[in-house]
């Protein structure tokens, strides 16, 4: 049976990976560092999320949603904050692709460069505080 789990004694890190993969919680993806949360793992997360969400609401909190993208200039408004996150930010620089003139797939359209780059949120303090202001 291919479902055998490496023992904790033998290799703790592999034991953990075996549990996650063979237990049906998640899998690796085509994007390095990003995972697919499988239905069983997501059902588990949903139960955790729902319990927490109820606790937040019971303590007077409400849910809202803010943008995925944060203008680069926002991040640098709080000095310690930008220093903490600068090294791990994904940055959006362009908004369009075009056919490769060589006929090999697509390339980033150099004419579609954003005036101000956008950061994929590492956390949302800056975009939220900017919203709270005006």
């Amino acid at each position: 049976m291919s479902k055998e789990i490496t023992s904790r004694q033998q290799d703790y890190a592999q034991w953990y990976n075996d549990l996650v993969l063979k237990g049906g919680l998640a899998d690796y993806s085509a994007v390095r560092g990003c995972m697919v949360i499988k239905p069983y793992g997501f059902a588990l997360w949903e139960n955790m999320r729902d319990a927490l969400d109820k606790m937040f609401k019971d303590t007077g909190h409400v849910n809202a949603y803010f943008p995925l993208f944060i203008p680069k200039s926002f991040l640098s408004k709080e000095a310690a904050h930008v220093e903490g996150f600068a090294k791990e930010c994904a940055v959006v620089t362009h908004y369009r692709l075009k056919n490769d003139p060589d006929g090999k797939g697509v390339i980033v359209d150099p004419e579609a460069k954003l005036e101000e780059e956008l950061i994929v949120r590492p956390t949302s303090e800056t975009i939220i505080w900017n919203t709270y202001k005006d």
Binding site: H61, V62, Y65, L68, V120, R121, S124
Partner: peptide
């Protein structure tokens, strides 16, 4: 306010 989201 709370937000449920993905982050990178």
């Amino acid at each position: 306010v709370n937000q449920w989201a993905n982050v990178v």
